Amino acid sequence: MAGGGFARLLDGSVVVALSLAAPPADGSAPGARVRVLVHAANRARALTRLRNLGLRSVYLRGNTEPPTPDEITAVLHHPDGMVWRSIPDDDTESWHPLASLLRDRPADAV
């Protein structure tokens, strides 16, 4: 993992931001990276939400790349509280639901 971080909100909840390798679309080697945002009650719960979706080796070490105010707004306004966007940041690209990133993964990629 290249970087990640978190921001504690006024209500005590947190937004966790992680930079991860994108899952390969056609069995090829992953090269692209994505920025994943998760809103949860605490950091441990945010990582558990990702692990429950099949991202078993997701860890947050340090706070080197905390979410920006725009990223926090994006994840708070999404009904699932989990979104992603490819890196490098393209201001014209919108945030996507995390389920769309994981939808087409092969079963043995977990």
Rank of each mutant, 00 (worst) to 15 (best):
G3A: 14
G3I: 10
G4K: 00
G4A: 04
G5M: 03
F6L: 14
A7V: 12
A7H: 07
R8P: 13
L9S: 13
L10P: 09
L10K: 11
G12P: 14
G12Q: 14
V14Q: 09
V14C: 10
V15I: 08
V16E: 14
V16N: 12
A17K: 15
A17R: 15
L18F: 03
A21G: 13
A22C: 09
A22F: 01
A22S: 13
A22Y: 03
P23K: 02
P24S: 13
P24M: 09
D26W: 02
G27P: 05
S28M: 06
A29C: 09
P30V: 07
P30D: 10
G31M: 01
A32M: 04
R33A: 12
R33T: 14
R33M: 11
R33S: 11
R33P: 06
R35Y: 06
V36I: 04
V36Q: 03
L37E: 11
L37R: 05
V38P: 06
V38Q: 05
V38F: 02
H39I: 02
H39S: 06
H39K: 01
A41I: 04
A41W: 03
R43D: 07
R43N: 12
A46K: 05
T48E: 14
R49N: 08
R49G: 07
R49Y: 07
R49H: 08
L50Y: 00
L50I: 00
R51D: 07
N52K: 08
L53F: 01
L53S: 11
G54K: 10
G54M: 11
L55A: 11
L55F: 03
L55Q: 10
R56A: 15
R56V: 02
S57D: 15
S57G: 11
Y59R: 11
Y59F: 10
L60D: 09
L60G: 07
R61L: 13
T64D: 14
T64G: 14
T64Y: 07
E65T: 15
E65H: 14
E65N: 14
E65M: 13
P66L: 04
P66Y: 06
T68K: 01
T68R: 01
D70Y: 03
E71L: 04
E71G: 08
A74P: 10
A74K: 04
A74I: 02
V75Y: 09
V75C: 13
V75Q: 14
H77W: 01
H78A: 08
P79H: 00
P79C: 02
D80S: 09
W84S: 03
W84Q: 02
W84F: 12
W84T: 01
R85M: 10
R85D: 04
S86V: 06
S86C: 11
S86P: 12
I87C: 12
P88R: 01
D89T: 08
D89S: 11
D91Q: 10
T92L: 12
T92S: 12
T92R: 10
E93L: 11
E93G: 05
E93N: 04
S94I: 15
S94T: 15
S94K: 03
H96N: 09
P97K: 01
A99N: 12
A99M: 10
S100T: 09
L102G: 04
D104N: 14
R105Y: 07
P106F: 05
V110A: 15
V110Q: 15
